[in-house]
Amino acid sequence: MERNTVLIALFAALIAVLGLIPKISLGFGVPITAQSLGVMLCGTVLGARRGALATLLFLLLVALGLPLLAGGRGGLGLFVSPTVGFLVGWPVAAFVTGLIVERAKGLPLLPAAILGAFVGGIVVLYAFGIVGMAVTLDKSLGEAAMLATPFIPGDLIKAALAGFVTSALARARPASVLSRA
């Protein structure tokens, strides 16, 4: 229990640290940041339940006003902005990512982690993000999906990076990859 709590807090802090990497602002209010890599790593390393809890802890801190999102953003206002879908989708994305890595025991860790990060951290997250953008920007789902296209190349790189980091961590400290414990 104590170890789980520490790891959940540590990975929430990892998401915050990735927010220190400067964001790339887009004209419609959703920036490109490195923080989605943290969400992917929550799932690939911690597994479904712990990964989702780490992202929920992070979002709670953001909602309380801590400026933890890229660019020093925080507060409840973000949950009615064009980023709302992505933020709400983070716990689900981490959960799905972790679930895939946990269930894909027949695959070596590297491809399982890349697959999990792709499905959870891109497909699932975009589903939430596109709906959030469509609602807040008063766009159709197709128009919102087109707005999401600039994120795809970077997110594909992040999914591969999450797989390689998770695999390297498993080689260095096998017991630390809880998604495969």
Rank of each mutant, 00 (worst) to 15 (best):
M1A: 13
G38K: 02
V92I: 11
G106N: 15
F164I: 11
K105E: 11
G71D: 10
I114R: 05
G121M: 08
L69I: 10
I32N: 01
F28G: 07
S36W: 04
R180Y: 06
G38S: 04
A54K: 00
R173I: 11
V30N: 03
P67C: 14
Q35F: 00
L87Q: 07
G51A: 09
I8P: 03
G71H: 10
I157N: 08
V101L: 09
A94V: 03
V88A: 12
G85V: 09
K158G: 05
A13T: 10
I32K: 05
L7F: 01
A94R: 06
R49N: 07
M40S: 00
R50P: 04
V123Q: 06
W90M: 12
L156C: 08
K158A: 04
V84G: 01
A12Y: 08
A113Q: 02
T149W: 14
L14P: 03
A70F: 04
I15D: 08
R173V: 12
L99N: 07
G29W: 04
L69R: 06
L109E: 07
G47P: 01
L178G: 07
G106Y: 11
G154L: 04
L26W: 06
A13Q: 03
L66A: 12
L156K: 07
A52M: 09
F11T: 05
G72H: 13
G106F: 15
K139F: 12
L125K: 05
I100V: 15
L10H: 00
L107K: 09
M146V: 12
L161E: 03
Q35Y: 01
G98A: 07
S140W: 15
T136A: 14
T83K: 03
L169Y: 03
K158E: 10
P31S: 13
P82Y: 10
F79A: 06
L10Q: 09
G19D: 13
E102W: 12
G129S: 06
R180A: 12
L26H: 05
